[in-house]
Design a binder for these strands. Structure first.
Lengths: 240, 240
DNA sequence: TAGATATAAATTGTATACAATATTGTGCGC
DNA sequence: GCGCACAATATTGTATACAATTTATATCTA
């Protein structure tokens, strides 16, 4: 499992840091949907007892990016088609108006921060690290909620973004990976211009774009269970 | 502490049931904001080990209706003025459009269920149990999200409702407790008529009503800490 | 050999023991 | 009596031990 294990024994490991590391790994697609997250395995990696691992896993399960099955363990969540639609519908409800607020609140420092995000995103893409680019792209959306000074909405968006990452891992269709960058650039401009109405509109269409770039009309997630895997295909995953 | 302790030793107590019992007690204002939730105390009440109590408290802290302070324990949350505004702003973003969807989806059974809710709400009020009426009123809002077939949004609304209950406990101003009933009746009618636009409008104004029925412009929460209580003045809120 | 069944291994669920921290109580000096 | 240092108590944080359950393995039968 590719995780950010602590480099030194002196590292202070809290429940949150474990949850955060796992969350980021999931967000960056280093952990595929369906992956088993064994407690012993994780407690070995992070050099803590199962107690803390369990707390971290429970935390992630509350965000619905990990599914805990009683007596069976924790798995990276596999959002269903229905859930996928719901997540994007929720985002379409929350984010456009939040982008509008952000446009009306944004300071030059905020704009600089957003631009910095884009730069990092480009750098990650240039380095071929699509997972990291996706993660940074999520942070961009989160940053907008922060600029809008709506922590409660930001929390909700944060969860929706993490779930979106899982949905993208399962249902992504398009090959073009750069479509987002343009949309983000345009958004920054609208926000920098304090053009709330336009920012709202751009965010709305951006989300619709993302939503429609998914295979949500026919295919169930692939590689779900052992049966499918053994009869021919690639990945090893579990059923829900 | 007035909690629903199990009546028999044979009761199967799960983490969720403890979290649910605590959540309901908070929702019904049987547990005031700021109340200390000691682990030993709760494990005595529910006859389980601290392990499960801790899991339940962590679950509630993720919903922000319980605040866990490291090395100090768990307390019923005390939403700040800012949080209070944010919660209602989030609800105003989510619920009107959800009510619209509900109006377009509702079946006769759904309408019957909503009416049943109102009836129970009235019964609770008639019995003088304002806490329970408040809880049922929250369920009414949740039920609408369920009718709209938006589980993800329903989950978010569920959390916002619980926090709203805390906010009401801290900032409620009006004496008239029945204002909601009328609004709910009107909403049911719009939904029963499949009048989405009107349902959306009614929900919006209902939430604005609730929001404006709070003392969110001046007073900080009362009865927070001993200093404030004894001095009878503006209390200093705890750090987050 | 396929299938079923019993047994063994591995994994999770829960409780408890101990350590770390915070809170409370006591005594001393002033 | 007041304030402060220090000890005693209580509470939370973490790890570990044991029980319950699932999963894997081996054995037996048709």
């Amino acid at each position: 499992m590719m995780l950010n294990s602590p480099t030194a024994d002196t590292t202070i490991v809290t429940t949150e840091s474990i949850a955060s590391a796992l969350s980021q790994a999931i967000h960056e697609h280093r952990l595929a949907p369906g992956t088993k997250l064994g407690e012993d395995e994780l407690s070995d990696i992070y050099r803590v007892s199962r107690t803390m691992v369990r707390a971290a896993l429970q935390s992630l399960s509350h965000q619905q990016i990990v599914e805990i099955k009683r007596n069976r363990g924790a798995f990276v969540a596999q959002p269903s088609l229905t859930e996928a639609h719901e997540v994007f519908e929720a985002r379409e409800l929350l984010e456009p108006r939040t982008a509008k607020s952000a446009a009306l609140n944004a300071t030059p420092e905020d704009i600089a921060l957003l631009n910095d995000h884009i730069t990092q995103e480009h750098a990650a893409l240039a380095a071929g690290d699509r997972g990291r680019a996706l993660y940074l792209s999520g942070l961009f959306h989160l940053e907008i909620a922060r600029i809008a000074k709506q922590q409660t909405i930001a929390d909700m968006i944060n969860v929706l973004i993490a779930r979106s990452s899982l949905i993208i891992a399962l249902y992504w269709r398009r090959e073009s990976a750069l479509c987002e960058s343009q949309a983000h650039h345009a958004l920054i401009k609208a926000i920098a211009d304090n053009n709330g109405a336009f920012a709202e509109e751009l965010m709305q269409s951006h989300l619709v774009d993302l939503h429609s770039a998914l295979n949500l009309h026919e295919l169930p997630p692939v590689g779900q269970n052992l049966k499918a895997m053994l009869l021919g295909a690639a990945p090893t995953q579990e059923t829900s």
